[in-house]
Design a protein around this nucleic acid. Structure first.
Lengths: 200, 200
DNA sequence: ACAAAAACATACTAACTGGTGTTTTTTATA
DNA sequence: TATAAAAAACACCAGTTAGTATGTTTTTGT
């Protein structure tokens, strides 16, 4: 029983370090050696717990990346209250409060989508799954707003959801190219124009 | 004189193959060996023409990637005619007509932004330069539309430009995760809602 | 106390990485 | 046609890669 716990702890240690290094340096640039050096464990320990790098990558996506998106972007949508205000809050106020490191290195999910999203079907599906969850949660919120007349009910909830996600992921990539937040201000102003059109 | 021409031709051959492989397999996954195997020239030939992989990467960005964006997204903005219609045409009608390969592998610029945009200042600047050109051209068109009263003149041209670009790059990444164009239809509908708000 | 199993470490391989130095071939020109 | 210079071929380097084989230590059930 204690062994299982230790095994789980070690896997978490590997997973955490892998996520951080994938995020900072990219998936392909990060070797197993570098990850295990970060854990201060050996390569043998890695291959005891994981079959190969691909399996690790998949677990990083489904366990670490997904959790981040769920906590940061999906759960906040599920609050009670004015649906339009929640939408506005999550998309308008969250971005600028990101820590510097996350502005500089973009969105972990978007980085993976663009680096390996078209390289392996398994990665593609795991990443798509996160996007679909996000999209569906957004649609649920938008449809609630439409029912409650805080969001225009003539508009397709799916279309709004997809466009909001696209722009959000897009700007997180583009922000990497700049050294300050001015480009984020322009994005946020552009987004607020969009939200005006969406508001009931 | 004829020698200079041949040298230029060889560089172009390397550049073309490098761009294609970077696009298909990513920057870091593509080795000099693979590029030169594709040209049927030797590795020595590569190092005769280029200092290192980084220099090649920069030339691919400034000569190949930039040209693609200029031809595909920037020059079409400079047509005469109703500015709003031009905006609508370029963003609404262009995307779905992309060849299958380019839907599957996303935007070459966006791929590079997310893979190496935060790894080297030189890459960062070269990529930012393209985005800035695009942004300024969009702003010029939008401001023309505002003067000609086809685009609402109360809105910030820069904000609209940045939001349009963000969403466009975002969806080109997300599309990689899907196997059909349904997600593009949602994006386009979401975009058309945005354009409604922008229209005079 | 002991055997089995799990957790981890060490040492290694074979292929591949970007890059260098040298030799051979091609080309322009005198 | 001789020659100098450019272009390309070739062999090679040191470092890194994912992955393996085999060892040692720790935990666990009996």
């Amino acid at each position: 029983m204690q062994q299982e716990l230790k095994s789980e702890l070690t896997k978490q240690l590997i997973l955490d370090n892998a996520f951080n290094l994938f995020y900072k340096s990219g998936f392909k640039s990060t070797s197993i050696d570098k990850i295990m050096k970060a854990t201060t464990l050996s390569k043998g320990a890695f291959y005891h717990h994981y079959k190969n790098k691909k399996q690790l990558g998949l677990e990083v996506i489904t366990l670490k990346v997904e959790k981040r998106v769920v906590n940061g972007m999906i759960l906040p949508l599920k609050q009670t209250g004015n649906a339009f205000n929640i939408l506005e809050n999550v998309f308008l106020n969250r971005l600028k409060s990101f820590p510097f490191f996350e502005k500089q290195h973009g969105c972990p999910m978007n980085n993976l989508i663009n680096e390996i999203g078209d390289h392996e079907v398994a990665y593609q599906l795991a990443l798509k799954n996160i996007v679909e969850n996000w999209k569906l949660s957004l649609m649920t919120l938008i449809e609630r707003g439409q029912a409650e007349k805080t969001i225009k009910n003539t508009l397709s909830s799916k279309a709004i959801a997809v466009y909001l996600i696209s722009a959000f992921e897009g700007i997180r990539g583009i922000r990497k190219l700049y050294n300050d937040d001015l480009i984020l201000d322009d994005y946020l102003l552009g987004l607020s124009i969009y939200l005006q059109q969406v508001k009931y």
